[in-house]
Design a protein around this nucleic acid. Structure first.
Lengths: 334, 334
DNA sequence: CTGAAAGCGCTTACAG
DNA sequence: CTGAAAGCGCTTACAG
């Protein structure tokens, strides 16, 4: 403990504390004293007791991260990686809790974090959406991750799905594709990714003077993507380009196209969203607009810990990760 | 704070503390006093200050979870879900840290947790393996998750890969398949899943009087699974049954078989390991021996918090999740 | 430049 | 059955 270090160095705990907290200069402590104390601390392997410090300072260098279920998400779990790394860089540690969507458990977790005097909490959702801000979050410094508060301005970090949509459309347009369909629609009303991507796609096409040729409705899953696309193909419809609402849908689309004897990208160009591992597993590799999960998590933590944060929504750009699923303008693959 | 509650109820903080910590009976406190204090606490919305409590008791009701990179793992991240839920049930909270495999960062994280007086730490690895126990872990109550200490007995929780291997073999044997190849081999020497699954497969076949027909070597990835299987097929080799070392390999195998015009399960029966989401995405759905990640995480936490823990390795059973990739004994699909 | 002392909010022997 | 008091290990005015 501090007292041991002070004794070993022959100074008071006051002096030792100032030195070990980097306030030596400010306190005009003799360099020689400074050295002596640091040496003593090192010799004794001194580690401050955080509980004692927190009791005094009311700061814990700990942030809470509560979510419905981001660890269970295949890929969204990298939000945790980003958050954990950013916290580490700012000398904080993160305590996590998952409610599994249970509001009562969520309230419990949030209260527990408050008891522990966390310096703030990141409130994350598995899928991008608008939420009703939990009451237990009020009065706690917090940042929303992958979600936004309905009807109120609140610090939030989200992917720029609309920009992603424009990028997806632009990718097809650049390849000379003019006949574009979208596969997938948002099953849940609060989800924002779908509508925003869709808006971006329409805007991107409009910029090239094009209209969306049509939409194939389906849930965002492999099996639904397959089933809906198969039905659509059976109707005899064809398109030069398909924008899939996520990589799982795209995987189903690949399966349906293969069964129908259509080749990617020779017969159909495919673009998708997520940039998940799936994209790299498909043959040809799927061109997909990447969800920047690690960055999202890191940014949420940085904003949480930034006293000068502006408080609004930040949209993190989504970049196109090129695979081989879009034909080149000349008919080859890009 | 407690003092307020005590004042409001007209008792000493001593009494209030006993009551709020459930020691009223033990202290033979008058039921009427008990009521009064609880009512006061409720009225005031009393929440104990954890730092103060921890400073006194040296217990934090917090456990650390440090890993190389389990949040980044597609599917292994559910170990976090399991750990978080189990901790919650035992009134604990988990602080997580990811080292990304950097030993120095790992040491830092472990020290930070010690400073924070965590009641114990779960040390987890992304892939099942034997490890050299980190020095920073010594002297801290801990349980290894998805890994085992080399050359020493230590509390550890791992999937029963060998049992899983036997189950995989038994599944094929039950379908009447006698000509079995394995696809995949372990790239890293410390990894334990591969050798153990392999041992189980051989044992399972031996039980039916069979030998393994051969092994197709490849890394555990979709692209490698595809490439290796394609080369193998090009050699003209055929097998009735394929055991893939994980679902990603199996996905590559499906692709290679499809390109070669072979059908699953009519021409080839396929069994795999992981039971990840991928299994459900493939057509036909892949029969896969499930890695019980959520249970592993939960069990590690429960053992960490169990004062009577036995201290050795626990193997959690792997169950077969049946899809449609294994033919039935009569030649249909199971 | 350095130290004595108070106090953060609890828990828990100890006394009655 | 209940309370006064010490003490957990720090930080930080305050005094010198």
């Amino acid at each position: 403990m501090l007292a041991d270090v002070a004794a070993e160095a022959g100074v008071s705990t006051t002096t030792a504390s100032y030195i070990l907290n980097g306030r030596a200069a400010q306190m005009r402590i003799a360099p020689e004293t400074d050295q002596r104390v640091r040496a003593a601390a090192a010799r004794l392997g001194y580690r401050p007791n955080r509980s004692a410090r927190s009791l005094r300072t009311r700061r814990t260098a700990t942030i809470g991260l509560v979510s419905d279920q981001i660890a269970g998400e295949q890929y969204g779990s990298s939000m945790l990686t980003g958050a954990s790394l950013a916290a580490r860089e700012l000398d904080h540690v993160v305590v996590m809790g998952e409610s599994g969507g249970d509001p009562e458990l969520e309230r419990l977790l949030l209260e527990e974090m408050r008891e522990r005097d966390v310096d703030g909490v990141v409130y994350a959702t598995r899928t991008a959406r608008t939420i009703h801000l939990p009451d237990a979050l009020r009065g706690v410094r917090s940042v929303l991750l992958n979600c936004e508060a309905r009807d109120e301005r609140y610090a939030a970090v989200l992917p720029d799905d609309e920009g992603g949509g424009r990028a997806a459309a632009a990718t097809l347009v650049a390849a000379g594709v003019s006949d574009v369909w979208v596969v997938g629609e948002d099953p849940t009303p609060e989800a924002t990714a779908g509508p925003r991507r869709m808006a971006g796609i329409r805007a991107g096409l409009a910029q090239a003077g094009l209209d969306l040729a049509g939409v194939v409705a389906c849930d965002w899953s492999v099996t639904e993507g397959f089933a809906a696309t198969s039905r659509w193909l059976a109707r005899g419809v064809r398109a030069e380009g398909l924008v899939c609402m996520n990589d799982r849908v795209a995987m189903g689309v690949y399966q349906a196209l293969a069964e129908a004897g259509l080749r990617v990208p020779d017969d159909v160009s495919v673009v998708s969203f997520d940039g998940s591992a799936i994209a790299g597993w498909l043959r040809p590799v799927l061109t997909s607009v990447q969800l920047p999960f690690t960055e999202l998590g890191a940014l949420a933590v940085r904003r949480l810990l930034d006293p000068d944060d502006h408080g609004g929504t930040d949209s993190v750009p989504m970049a196109v990760r090129h695979g081989g699923s879009v034909r080149t303008a000349r008919g080859g693959t890009a």
